[in-house]
């Protein structure tokens, strides 16, 4: 049996929805356990007081990268069937900027706003409402924004192609960067009084 299981036809659309549900529940559970539903904790990221988001997300990147690499090497995964999202430089830079401003203002991103709602935080509901309104607004303004939306396409880019490095060296480089980043993040947190603990906006007293 080789992955991706859906692409190889091991299961159909119905089963893939069930798998997506299980993966989503696990993802939400781990985000909540990691404190990602706490807006204070997330906003503290931008002041270098609590770098949990950075650590959680970079850990996920390294875990997925090592998993993909070794599963491929062991013949359990076919990498050419994995979807690599294409890059549009200017719209993605602008989108990232808007996303970042929204993140620091609301203290939550789309995924963590759902996590916050599930643990009873009303600010999560406000962020989700704003996000849905933004999607509606974008849809209505799409005829005007269409030129920008599809500007500067550069196709699918991967780090080994951009850095002109072998895949194997890129894996080591990214992992070393992550570990160095974690060490630096913990030093920064200690220098600013330590990470944000369970705060008054935590409904049941802790996450």
């Amino acid at each position: 049996m080789r992955a991706p299981l859906y692409e190889w036809g091991f299961f159909g659309d119905g089963a893939s929805l069930l798998v997506a549900l299980a993966v989503g529940v696990a993802f939400g559970w781990f985000l909540e356990r990691g404190g990602m539903g706490n807006a204070r904790k997330l906003a503290a990221q931008f002041y270098f007081r609590d770098l949990t988001v950075f650590k959680v997300l970079f850990t996920a990147v390294v875990t997925a990268m090592l998993g993909v690499f070794w599963l491929t090497r062991l013949g359990l995964l076919e990498p050419s069937l994995l979807y690599v999202p294409p890059t549009w430089v200017v719209p993605q830079l602008l989108g990232g900027l808007v996303f970042g401003v929204g993140f620091v203002m609301g203290g939550l991103c789309p995924g963590t706003s759902c996590v916050a709602i599930s643990s009873g935080r009303r600010d999560g509901l406000a962020v989700l409402g704003g996000m849905l309104f933004g999607i509606l607004l974008f849809g209505e303004a799409f005829p005007v924004l269409e030129g920008l939306y599809s500007a500067t396409p550069v196709g699918t880019l991967t780090l080994p192609e951009v850095l002109r490095l072998p895949y194997e060296a890129t894996v080591l480089l990214v992992t070393a960067m992550a570990v160095a980043g974690f060490v630096l993040a913990e030093r920064l947190e200690r220098g600013r009084g330590g990470p944000v603990g369970p705060g008054p906006d935590t409904p049941q007293g802790g996450t």
Binding site: V62, T63, L66, V68, F69, W70, T72, R73, L74, G75, L77, P79, P166, Y167, E168, A169, V171, L172, V174, T175, A176, A178, V179
Partner: peptide, 19 residues
């Protein structure tokens, strides 16, 4: 993680896992 990444770097060159 570092052990797995180092082993990856030493596992030979070429497109990852291309059979």
């Amino acid at each position: 993680g570092l052990t797995l990444a180092t082993l990856a770097a030493l596992s030979g060159t070429g497109p990852a896992g291309a059979p």
